[in-house]
Amino acid sequence: MDAPDPTLRPLPDAEVVVDLDAVRHNVRRLRELVWGPPTDAGSGSSTGVGQVMVVVKADGYGHGMVPVARAARQAGAEWIGAATPAEALALREAGDTGRLLCWLAAPGHDFAPLVAADVDVTAYSTTQLEEVVRGARAAGRPARLQLKLDTGLSRGGAARDDWLPLITAARHAQDDGDVVVTGVWSHLACADEPGHPANAAQVAAFTEGLALVADAGLEPEVRHLANSAGALWLEDARHDLVRLGIAAYGLSPEPGVATSDELGLVPAMTVRGRLVMVKQLAEGDGVSYGHTWTAPAPTRVGLVPMGYGDGVPRHASSRAELLVTGVRRPVLGRVCMDQLVVEAPDAEAGDEVLLLGPGSSGEPTAADWARWSDTIGYEVVTRMGGRQVRSWVGER
């Protein structure tokens, strides 16, 4: 019996499709942009000495943490980044064995499972370092430890007055055999504005922190400051390793500086569905809650079974457009929890609707939705989910 043709399967009412070939392309393209072209055809290595980390926090920015991590490894990513310990351990349980960093743990966290799983953990303070040491002793092996310094984002990481105590304590813990300091890092606040003075200030502050690390006799494997925007536009921030977040998914960190197309990136997410029904409205009929949109003339509309419960931004009500029968049509009235109304003059019930994608067929992109919603593309793709079926193409 022949296997069923996957292209003939029924189209779900609401679906998120992630193109893993696009993820692999983006990782390779970004490596080339940051570190230079491959040294030879077919090689994943580049002329530069730098490494890349692909960040898969928040379930891979809504794209699926495990499939994206696997695709990133296949494209040559030396490191994977996961914000929380639970994310890191889930990756290990799924079979990831490469270098893996996590950085967001509340006080009292048990670091022993992370140490046992060979995950690089992050300390923001001497108190957290003590917890890492306890975890290492419980696991019976040294912890792979990275130190995070706050250089001006004023979020996670050791405050400047605490840098030297943390670095000194880490050196003592390494001398005692409880940790191996594998990295020192920080995070940029304004890298998506390449000319912002905070960038130069943070690069200078990080250089000061690295000098303290060197003075303490520590020789970490990697020093990293640059996120996607820093990797692309701030050469002085690159150091040994760059952390690729949103750009690995094909979205520009700031379309006003360079679009995805200009960077040679391919958005990996497509959100599509089917019209549940179509109907004819009369002039003067109000649509959706509050009747914020009223038909100025007889109008044919379609009902899409997705709403803010599935990640469609309510802020885009009466501003967004969808691709219906090959033409962009406006969303009419307020986006509801699980449905929205779109102009559909030529459509029938069951027809496909594209909410967002790479834009290659004329459909809206995440950047479009960000503009309509007064937000950023990161939020648009990360929140997509809910009751939508998620599938992946390009799996190996």
Rank of each mutant, 00 (worst) to 15 (best):
Q174S: 08
L30H: 08
G311T: 04
H172R: 08
E93C: 03
S260Y: 00
P305I: 09
T325R: 15
A191N: 02
P296F: 14
T39A: 13
A189I: 05
R29A: 13
P37H: 10
V179P: 07
A295S: 15
V342T: 05
A198Y: 07
V287Y: 05
R24T: 06
A72D: 07
G290P: 06
A295E: 03
R9Y: 11
H63R: 05
W103A: 07
G81D: 06
A94E: 08
R73K: 09
V121L: 04
D161E: 14
T375G: 09
T294K: 05
N227Q: 11
P330T: 09
A226E: 11
R29Q: 14
G62V: 01
V222E: 13
T375P: 05
A200D: 15
L147V: 11
M1W: 08
A41I: 06
P296Q: 08
Y124T: 12
M337S: 12
G60D: 00
A268V: 11
L100D: 08
L323C: 04
W185Y: 14
E87P: 05
V222G: 00
L166E: 03
T151S: 10
T168L: 12
V381C: 06
P330K: 07
G76P: 14
A72K: 02
G135T: 06
S317D: 05
V181H: 04
A295Y: 07
G108K: 09
D5A: 14
T127M: 10
E363T: 04
D118Y: 09
A88M: 10
H196G: 09
R238W: 14
V55Q: 00
R334C: 13
L149F: 15
T207W: 03
P194Y: 06
W372C: 04
V353F: 00
E321I: 00
G302E: 01
